[in-house]
Design a binder for these strands. Structure first.
Length: 286
DNA sequence: CACTTGACCTGTCCGC
DNA sequence: TGCGGACAGGTCAAGT
């Protein structure tokens, strides 16, 4: 599920809801998704919420950080436990009552509210790490990660230099590599390559400077538009209130195989690269 | 090194 | 209605 815009949507939601709350209990329904000592979290307060690549961090007092990766189907749903549901609650409307069949961990807070970590496929995880070591040991704690595309210093030259570390890799596959650029996944590679009019099968070392510039623009435009639309919901993604995102209503190619392309008489095509679906318009993307 | 496939899991959808 | 197979916002390890 979540790529950069979806994780960012969750981050923005959590920021408004849980900063300042104190954790009173952690229930591990699927213990293997939780790494570390959950008892350490009792009585700790939420300081702030951050995102790096597709990971979400919740900093707590006592130098503790909860690090989440939601992988394909992870959800973080916040519910004000004391509010009685009387016909028309966004979470209930979308997902039914919490917890549900896919709930893997439940965090409880001192005001009676709860944060539900749901994950149908159980690929996701959350772990406890020391906040103060993240900066110095990012590679060890978060993995090898390329630059954040929405940071100011992410220029088209930075994009080019990083992608060129994999000269003979198809551009679509290179864009998915988190060690080259962080946060971009299957939806936004297809979308940004369409905006740049670049064929996803092209090898990185055949891309011209003009094309790197257009690709840079396409990445920023698709990520920003998606955050504005609350992310992409294909099947599972919802924000912390259980609501879907609407970026896919504005998508050009993702999930549109067999449908007419927006700007030419041709149809959008789906191919497989590195085991994942790629969508593009063979007429527009050269 | 470059690239593909399978594994991790559960659920849904589509064709027979 | 049932069953098998393909497929799903991600990432690893292992194999060619």
């Amino acid at each position: 599920m979540p790529e950069l815009p979806e994780v960012e949507t969750i981050r923005l939601g959590l920021e408004k809801k849980i900063v300042g709350l104190e954790i009173t209990n952690i229930e591990l329904i699927r213990p293997k998704t939780f790494q570390g000592d959950n008892k350490l979290l009792q009585g700790k307060k939420v300081l702030n919420i951050w995102r790096r690549a597709k990971m979400l961090g919740i900093d707590l007092t006592s130098d503790l950080t909860l690090l989440f990766h939601l992988k394909m189907t992870g959800q973080l749903i916040f519910e004000k436990g004391k509010e009685k549901i009387t016909g028309g609650h966004p979470t209930k409307d979308m997902l039914g009552p919490m917890p549900n069949k896919s709930t893997v961990v439940i965090f409880s807070f001192d005001d009676g509210s709860h944060l539900y970590f749901n994950d149908q496929r159980q690929f996701g995880w959350v772990k406890v790490i020391p906040t103060s070591r993240i900066e110095a040991e990012e590679k060890k704690l978060l993995g090898e990660l390329g630059p954040e595309p929405l940071e100011k210093d992410f220029t088209w030259q930075v994009l080019k230099d990083n992608l060129l570390k994999r000269k003979k890799t198809p551009i679509k596959v290179a864009l998915m590599d988190q060690s080259l650029i962080a946060g971009i996944g299957n939806i936004y590679t297809s979308e940004s390559l369409f905006l740049a009019r670049v064929d996803p099968r092209r090898l990185v070392n055949t891309i011209t400077d003009e094309e790197f510039k257009k690709l840079h623009r396409g990445i920023l435009d698709s990520l920003r538009l998606s955050i504005e639309k609350g992310g992409s919901t294909r099947a599972h993604f919802v924000n912390v209130d259980g609501q879907k995102g609407y970026f896919l209503d504005f998508a050009n190619v993702y999930g549109k195989d067999g449908q007419a392309c927006r700007g030419c008489p041709d149809k959008v095509v789906k191919i497989t690269q590195a085991g994942r679906g790629t969508y593009f318009c063979p007429d527009c993307q050269k």
